[in-house]
Design a protein around this nucleic acid. Structure first.
Length: 308
DNA sequence: AGTAATCCCTGGCAGC
DNA sequence: TGCTGCCAGGGATTAC
């Protein structure tokens, strides 16, 4: 579940070590994660120098001359740095289990599908259990034409994300606000966890229709989205299961979540048990008392005493 | 055009 | 113990 904060934490880690290195060899163990043929990937990357590590939404972008290596981590993708000079450092403990949770896991296993070997012997491992991730090479000058990447909405942590954009995007929408937040065309980088957290902070139920939010609610949501994302970055990302950063370290934001993954547990604000409902085919967690619900099912407080 | 459902994939876990 | 079935979910694709 790497969302914007997790991808940003990885980006910052890689940005300290990868730029300036030359990709000597690309080792592909499973080509399913590639969006282009293996030999073409190798031809366009081998011998090239990585200039920077950028991020757009949930995409990592590593320019190598006229082309860029694009990595989307999907659900369980991991991009970790292998430092051959420090094999005994704490970051390189080799687990004898395939469990990722405990992990600082750099050892190549059956899920390590691609390794980018640098000319100095260091490397970048791409590991992805469920293989929803994607590796692509695309000309830098035509990134705006790339499927997915080219149609992203504004970056929620940058000036391009304004209250006006948010309001215009919601106007007339008949879908649930939760579904709208997950739509990458609307705003880039928000996923299931941070959408739930933002809606909690804004006091909006996930099933509320996007076009029916009040101005006050839109303003609160506009503040809440960057707030939960910034907190996620600050805490090193949310490691519910598989997420680790480029050094193999887990984040701690899962301990700071207010609603996601807390079904049945008391709301930190009012004590009401957190509920879970499926919206847009995704689990959505909310406080029935703190978050106003719509569609004629009562308002804040109205259902606080009812049994699920 | 906007919205909703389906599918891809594997590990973990509940249930028997 | 070991099997089966279900769930998790980002986003492209398909259907309505």
């Amino acid at each position: 579940m790497p969302e914007l904060p997790e991808v940003e934490v990885i980006r910052r880690g890689l940005a300290e070590r990868v730029p300036g290195r030359t990709i000597e060899r690309v080792e592909v163990r499973k080509a399913n994660v590639l969006e282009l043929p293996e030999d073409e990937l190798q031809r366009r990357l081998e011998g090239r120098r990585i200039e920077a590590v950028r991020r757009r939404g949930k995409f990592l972008i590593l320019p190598v001359g006229a082309d860029a290596l694009i990595v989307h981590l999907g659900m369980t993708g991991q991009l970790t740095f292998w430092d051959r000079a420090a094999p005994d450092s704490p970051g390189f403990i080799v687990q004898d289990t395939t469990g990722l949770q405990r992990a600082r896991q750099h050892a190549v296993d059956k899920h390590t599908h691609v390794t980018f070997w640098f000319s100095d012997g260091d490397a970048l491992h791409y590991r992805d259990i469920r293989m929803f991730g994607l590796i692509q090479v695309w000309p830098v000058a035509r990134l705006h034409e790339m499927k997915g990447l080219g149609e992203l909405g504004p970056e929620p942590l940058e000036d391009a994300f304004t209250l006006e954009h948010l309001s215009a995007g919601l106007k007339g929408r008949k879908r649930a606000i939760k579904a709208q937040l997950l739509d990458q065309h609307f705003v880039a980088g928000v996923g299931n966890i941070y959408a739930d957290e933002a809606l909690f902070r804004a006091g909006i139920g996930p099933e509320r229709l996007a076009g029916r939010l009040t101005r006050a609610e839109r303003e609160r949501l506009f503040e809440a989205i960057p707030a939960v994302l910034r907190q996620g970055i600050e805490f090193g990302g949310t490691s519910m299961r598989d997420y680790i950063d480029s050094d193999g370290q887990r984040g701690s934001n899962q301990e700071a979540l207010r609603v996601y993954g807390r079904e049945g547990e008391p709301c930190y604000t009012c004590g009401t048990p957190i509920r879970r409902v499926i919206v847009a085919q995704r689990s959505s967690h909310y406080c029935p008392r703190c978050q106003r619900r719509g569609r004629g099912r009562g308002r804040a407080g109205a259902a606080a005493g009812t049994k699920p």
